[in-house]
Design a protein around this nucleic acid. Structure first.
Lengths: 199, 199, 199, 199
DNA sequence: AATGAATGAGAGTTCATTCAT
DNA sequence: AATGAATGAACTCTCATTCAT
């Protein structure tokens, strides 16, 4: 997985990270025991404590790494387009792609939202901030007329996460590609000018 | 809280329910001990088991009750308007109102989404189904042109939950009323006709 | 069952006795809960304590009653024959009959041997004492030449209980009647004169 | 005790085994708590679970070990004599010796008969099988005329266990040696030819 | 760094018994 | 006598963490 791309996957610390990630997603953080992590990683239980201070430390570091990885991917894609709407479209595609290609990283970000988010400083950049920035520039250029970029970024991420969630649970019958296309369109609608829709 | 409106709040079962709800929200279900629930409810630990089969049973029953309560409130509000867009507006208002007036019930629905949702039969009606129904009727009447009512209901609930979450965490500086108004408008945009936005 | 022959079986105390007996045999005394006894007896849990001081008291009283019943049956049969060997035969038949007709009473005597026997005074007459008395009179009459009537009574009861146990567990292929006949013969052999066997 | 002869008695697993054995005999299996076992063994309560899956697992493993040890001792002694009656005498002596030298192992076999015996496969060899084999060979050689070796093995084990039980409870006034001698004689009588006794 | 047995606090749950009704 | 909810002590078992090797 990407998490370990630049590191040797065979290294204990990396194997622990990978095992913990899988288990945290499947059973939750409190629902995962250090014994399970050690078994899955093929290391001894005590070995975990040579690399991480505690189970909580492991969970949090993992969360930060996942968040950073996600945000970086979105950030990079954002640079590949010029206009706010172009950037938005690119980032939404990247969002869906990431959820598909790194399902565990994505899933853990969702899982950790409740328990880990409160433990990190507010200054840490999160995926939603990428949307905020794009929308803000769109507001300034007049492309996305409106007021609060944070609220609107909240709308977009809400739409995206829910769409992905519903797709994963098998509620929707549309193809993945169609969902992405539809979501881009709907996002642009949300950010569009007020005068248009109401008639 | 509404949960106990029609029952004597002094009854042990009700006190257990109320205590568990608060604690589950604050510390999560696995993070809450039966000892804490008992202390908070003012009953003995063993007493919990005269009313619920296990801690898990308590958590699940509570989740079902919260879901049902929320859905009923939305359902009732939905009947007070005639047109799909009228219904949508009414239900969005009800959604925000509920989150504000029953913050614990609302919070527990969010918390339980990951752990409890998978344990209940798919036939149980959920808040999102209220939106689905409204959108579907709007699609049939032509008011909400488009295809998949479930995906679009996912968009709406995503927008709402994120907006409420961001408001709670203090990220947004808008007034509650302004957020609600803005969210209604944005929701209608998402469901509006395709031709309009793109230029 | 005989236990309640002279009492109204519908009376709570009797229903408790009957339910407890069944359950104690099936699951052991410590393995049986008062809740189960109450349910099986169709009374409330608290009702048990209107009739017995505790679960232990119930178990012990039941044990004493079972022992007394068994011993009385053997005693009575013993009187129906005149000679020691005649009495022995009659009592062995009665022993097997009792185990067959009152399987629960018999089973509970076996079960309670380890836990209850130590709680009752040594003066209480037990089934083995019936054998002791017969053997003693046989030793005095010269019919059962030998020394220690208690050891020999131990032999006889050991043979009987093991034979019944093995029959119940299905290890033996002989008919019940054949086992009884064989056991009578073998018992008489054990008590027979010494000079005979050794050559 | 023999159980640990070939192992270091200071090892935790062995200390747990030893402590559990003593306590199970004294208070029964359900009557013994893991806390008591841990205290008696000088280990922490949790440590029990590093060596055994559960208290029930500990009780069962202990039972199987005790049974195996007993049967092996009897088996070995059986080989030291040539004729069936010689073997029988040797094994009866070994039976009494074992009960005296390994009182805890012997006692636990008796205690476990009710609760553990049903949990082990029927193919596991038990002490009674040693008697069965001897009697069978005696029946074939004509030394022990008669039919069912299993029933007769049941007689012998019944006599032995009851004799030991009565000796332990102090009911008998004979010396241990005399009891053993008497029991050998009586056992041979039971297995002797029919014609003799009845005279 | 790596191990894994040992720890002990504490988890969820059970249950004989009590007691107000 | 009868009830059954309430009790609280005690139960078995779990688990993050430590530490001698």
């Amino acid at each position: 997985m990407i998490l370990s791309m630049s590191r040797k996957i065979s290294e204990p610390a990396e194997r622990i990270r990978s095992a913990a990630l899988s288990l945290f997603i499947k059973n939750g953080i409190t629902g995962t025991t250090t014994k399970e992590i050690a078994r899955e990683a093929g290391v001894s239980e005590g070995s975990i404590y040579n690399h991480f201070e505690s189970k909580g430390d492991l969970a949090l570091k993992l969360f930060l790494e996942c968040m950073a990885m996600f945000r970086e991917v979105l950030d990079k894609k954002s640079l590949e387009a010029d206009t706010p709407s172009g950037k938005l479209e690119a980032v939404i595609h990247a969002f869906f792609d990431f959820a598909r290609r790194e399902p565990e990283v994505y899933a853990y970000i969702m899982v950790g939202h409740f328990t880990e988010l409160g433990k990190i400083p507010k200054t840490v950049k999160k995926p939603v901030d990428v949307f905020s920035a794009i929308i803000k520039s769109g507001m300034e250029s007049g492309e996305f007329p409106g007021h609060d970029e944070k609220l609107r970024a909240a709308y977009i991420t809400g739409m995206l996460t829910r769409a992905i969630l519903f797709h994963k649970t098998g509620v929707l019958r549309m193809s993945y590609r169609a969902i992405v296309r539809e979501t881009v369109k709907s996002s642009l609608k949300v950010l569009g000018s007020d005068g248009c829709v109401q008639k």
